[in-house]
Each structure stands twice: as structure tokens, then as C-alpha cells.
Amino acid sequence: MWEYTEKVRELFLHPKNAGEITDPDAVGEVGSIICGDALKLTLKIDKETARITDAKFQTFGCASAIASSSALTELIKGMTIEQASRITNKDIAEFLGGLPKEKMHCSVMGREALEAAISSYRGEAKAPEVHERIICKCFEVSEEKIRRVAIENRLTTVDDITNYTKAGGGCGFCKPDIEAILMDILSVRTIPEPVHPPRKLTNLKKIALIQDVIDKEIRPRLQADSGDIDLIDIDNNRVIVALRAMCVSCPMGNVTIKGIEEKLRELVSDDIVVEEG
């Protein structure tokens, strides 16, 4: 069974603020029953001070969804709208003493409901959903949500994304798309290494170094994904390689070649061009 903290158990078995405020100043509804969890958040807000005087939740979902919803209401009661708008899913998870990683999406749902409620209070129109690019069709998760959750929680793998947003947890067809989004995010966030002074390499040394980098740096990574690489030829600054095994059919093939090139530029010489032979 799941390893829930005492706080999760307590707020699940004896939830605080369960119910619905009859005359709410703000309402946030997220999730859907088909996908296993849904949350309706209702808030009472003091107009003068913009402070949340009461918060209640209704949740359809598992123990951690109920506990996360309850935790959210406990967190935001007494806060100003401004303060509440800075609450993240991490705050909810921390309030609970942590959540199993597979259940982090429950904390994300809490934060989304809060956001929806705040938007409704501020009278902001809900962002038109039709323009969102839906990545995970099973759970209707948009690219925007994946990007945001990934950046805020410093997620690096597709499994992380599934745990935090459920995207990729259904049929799994969108996993390559999620991978591409992650690659994009990670490449933006990568801080460039300090540039080494250009090394003068003899041709022989250069070839040896390229082989070494492929063997030690590149091949193990490809093999971890059931792929492989062969070095076919080196012609001046052109490095010709062939991707093998799973890499052949991998939709990420182009990205892989780019990655190999970057690695070789970083470690060997910055004028290297990698081509597929």
C-alpha cells in the first residue's frame, strides 16, 4: 500500500473544511470523475482586506486527494489573495509532510483549483482552453501545464511528469511528446559550461579523443535506452556516425544526433559537425 504520512492519514480520516460555502465569493473546479479525481473549492473573501476568511472543499478521489484538498484550505485560510496566489503544489505537499511521488498530482490539483478560484474572484476570464495544445489525451493535460509543473518542481524524467500531472499515465502514446518538452525545457535551463581555451589537437589525438568521448560519454547513455552508436568515419571536423538498435526507430533520432554533436563540441572541439551515415 501507499506510504502516507501521519498528516495525510489525519487529514484524510478527519478532513478539515470539507463541504461547500453556500454563498461563495470565489469558486475553483478542476479535474473530472473519469480520471479519478476532481476538486471543487469555494472561498469566502473579505472585500475590504482581500483576505480569505473561509475555505471549503469537495473532493472526489483517493486519500491523498482528499488530504491535499483539506491541506490547501488549511493553508490559505487567513491569507490575502495576493499571498494565496503564491501557494504552490510544493507548499501543499510540504504541509502534508510529503506525498508518495505517484500521488504528487493530488497537490498539483489543489494548486490548480486555488488558481481557478482566484481567477474567478478577480473576474479574469478563464484562458480559452481550445488554444491549449493537449499533450496527454487520456487525461487532457496541456503542454502549458506540463511545462509549468516541470519547471516549478524541477522535474527531469517522463515518469516524474506522470507522477505530477498524470500525463502519460494512460495509453502512453504521448510519452515521446513529453520527452521532447522536457528536452526543450532542460536545454533552455542548461547553464553553459565555462569555455575551455581551444586545445590544439593533432589529427591523431582528435580521432582518439572523439572515440573516447563516444565510448565513455555517449554510448552508455544510448545503451541505457536500448540504443547504440557506431563511429563510421571522421573527416576533418565531420564526424559520421550510425545509430543502432532502438535508436533507429526512435522518434528522438534527430535530437540524439544534436546531443552527440553538442557533447563532442564541448569535449573535443567546437567546430565538430555530426552527421548520420
Binding site: P15, A18, G19, E29, S32, I33, I34, C35, A38, L39, K40, F57, Q58, T59, F60, I66, C138, F139, G170, C171
Partner: peptide, 20 residues
């Protein structure tokens, strides 16, 4: 059911079961 938003009944448009 007391804390479920669906306790009052189904939202018909949510009744589709395209998940999985």
C-alpha cells in the same frame, strides 16, 4: 459522498469514459 462534489449527481458531460 458527503465530501464528494458529485454527490448530488453526475455531470452528464463527464459521463464519457474515454480514459483507457
Amino acid at each position: 459522498r458527503g465530501i464528494s462534489p458529485y454527490a448530488k449527481g453526475w455531470d452528464e458531460k463527464d459521463e464519457s469514459h474515454k480514459c483507457f
